[in-house]
């Protein structure tokens, strides 16, 4: 059973909650200037009203929240430290929750890969490259590598533990061997072959990241797939 509390002192009478609710739980009382809960049994806990409320005045109890696996733990930790209210503290996550979350993420990645390949097969490298550059932009600036070697060292750290990278540069040729790979484990678990669209996405994700961080352009020349490791070769050009 979901119950809804409106903080009457905080409410600013904007009627956004009345408008946001798909199941018409609220009615606006013009005399008091407050929303009234008139249809509580119709509430299914989508929290659209809470999200729309400019005053953070609507609270729900009895709504099953998603696992905190999806939340940023650092941000959740800030909440109770900001109000002094232990009720806002971070609930502990069990390792079983983490495993469920990872399985869920794996399944989502597979379906995302299927959708992407059906809709934009030839655009996959572009999607991967964009995602890699976005990752590079997102890192705090105090980790800016001074040269391509430092970018490679940083990439090894950033991509672990999902991907174990072993890059090698000789002249203007870059060879990256990927040993322990999250995607290969995923493929083995779901009995699909490696080297599919997710692998294409991954390579361009890595290359996009490296080219932004190392300030170079990478032209892909060859891919070798083995049962324990894949090796990607690319030519390095100055950007």
């Amino acid at each position: 059973m979901i119950t809804i509390q409106v903080d009457e002192k905080a409410c600013v009478s904007c009627t956004l909650c009345v408008d946001a609710c798909e199941t018409r739980v609220f009615a606006f009382n013009d005399a008091t200037g407050l929303p009234e809960v008139v249809n509580a049994k119709e509430c299914f806990g989508c929290l659209a009203c809470s999200a729309a409320c400019p005053a953070n005045a609507i609270d729900h109890t009895g709504v099953p929240h998603s696992m905190n696996f999806y939340y940023d733990l650092h941000s959740l930790d800030m909440l109770s430290k900001m109000t002094g209210d232990a009720a806002d503290a971070v609930p502990a996550i069990a390792s079983a929750d983490v495993k469920r979350g990872l399985d869920d993420l794996g399944a989502r990645l597979l379906s995302l890969g299927a959708v992407l390949s059906a809709t934009l097969r030839s655009g996959l490298p572009a999607v991967g490259t964009f995602a890699g550059r976005t990752l590079a932009n997102q890192l705090p600036r105090y980790r800016v590598p001074k040269n391509f070697e430092e970018a490679l060292a940083l990439a090894i750290e950033e991509f672990a533990p999902a991907w174990q990278l072993e890059p090698k540069v000789s002249g203007d040729t870059l060879t990256i061997t990927v040993k322990d790979c999250f995607l290969r484990r995923l493929a083995q678990k779901h009995n699909s072959e490696t080297g599919g669209d997710l692998c294409t996405l991954f390579y361009h994700y890595l290359a996009g990241y490296l080219s932004r961080m190392g300030k170079v352009r990478l032209r892909h020349t060859a891919t070798e797939r083995g049962c324990d490791a894949c090796t990607y070769t690319a030519q390095i050009h100055p950007s």
């Binding site: 600013v12 009478s13 009627t15 400019p54 005053a55 953070n56 005045a57 900001m82």
Partner: peptide, 18 residues
């Protein structure tokens, strides 16, 4: 009391309307 969880809007006297 615990510290407020409200937003700046909640303390503002201006009327929010369409």
């Amino acid at each position: 009391p615990k510290l407020s969880k409200r937003t700046v809007c909640s303390g503002c006297t201006r009327k929010m309307s369409r």
